[in-house]
Amino acid sequence: MKLGYNEATCMKRSTVENDLVLCERYGYEYIELRLDMLKKYLEKNTLADLQSFFRSSRLKPYAFNSIENINFCSADQWDTLISLFTFGCEIAQAIGNPYLIVVPTMGDDMHKKSKDDVYSDSVEVLNKLADIAKPYKVKLAFEPIGDKRWCVRSLEQALEIVHAVDRPDVGVALDSINLFLYNRLSNIDSIDDVPLDKLFVYHVNDCEDLPLGVLDHCHRLYPGDGIIPLAKISDKLHKKGYEEICSVELFRPEYWELDPEKVIRTASQKAQRFL
């Protein structure tokens, strides 16, 4: 697999400009740009500047993060979502960024939604978004979030939805902590059921040993520093023939307060063993 970096890892103290330089310095092959950080970048820089960087760099863009809360939108929420989504598609086309990650809706009432309602809404929304993205040649990576606050939690559920959509430009994004947040990865064999052509993105991270209900995204750790069986996940991906991005994505507030160079260097060193 190829080492990637997700900008959430240092987003409080870093910038797109800084991340580009540091990722190239410490051996990353791909970067997942955040749309909010990208908008800030374009306040002081031009799209031509970004295109120029990627033309001359070994580092390449891979997947924009992210379009969130795609389910059960009001008309106003949908208009706002489409505005950001279209912005992402336009920039993605301009710099050769092939994927855009889309995330199911979070809310304290999401566990009350029926599986059938989540299924039908997700299929409808993913088709609408894929129709918009198609002219830009951007593919959608649908990422299940294991915590009960999200309406699509398991890989099995996400894969069922993606199969129903049944188009080559819609697949899944796997995230190790999200796999773990759903019943502590008791469903690890579900990785075997993901067709290779539907596996678009893999996020690698670790986490503290905390009970479900307490464990959250703020408890992410560098790969290898926690309890997620990352070697087993890597083994399953290797056996499948997956050779694309293995992207470090950390949301740990403690890491946000550190020097970004230290975090990016450390993350590269620790993730290498799981490629």
Rank of each mutant, 00 (worst) to 15 (best):
P168C: 06
H163R: 10
N205H: 00
H217K: 10
N183Y: 12
C151N: 14
N187F: 07
D225V: 05
S176Q: 14
K232R: 14
P168I: 11
E208R: 02
L221V: 04
I145A: 02
D206S: 03
D147A: 12
I188W: 05
L185P: 02
V162L: 01
A133K: 05
S122C: 15
L140G: 03
R184T: 11
A164R: 07
V125R: 14
N178D: 14
V172A: 07
L215S: 09
G226L: 06
V201F: 03
R220Q: 14
E243G: 02
A158V: 06
W150N: 06
I233S: 03
Y202Q: 01
L185A: 10
D147H: 15
V204E: 04
Y182F: 14
L199Y: 03
I233L: 09
S176Y: 08
I145H: 10
D189A: 06
I132C: 04
G226R: 10
V165K: 05
S120R: 13
I188P: 02
I132E: 07
F180V: 05
R153W: 12
G146F: 01
S154E: 13
L210A: 01
S176P: 07
L215R: 03
P195R: 04
R149F: 12
R153H: 13
L215P: 07
L212S: 02
N127A: 03
V162E: 01
V162Q: 01
Y202T: 06
V152S: 05
D189T: 12
D169Y: 11
I161V: 02
A231V: 08
F180A: 10
L126D: 12
E208F: 00
I245K: 00
L237W: 09
F200Q: 02
K148I: 10
L212I: 11
L140F: 07
S122W: 15
D169F: 12
I145K: 10
Y136L: 00
K198Q: 11
S186Q: 12
N205R: 02
A158Q: 06
K134P: 04
I227K: 05
S176C: 14
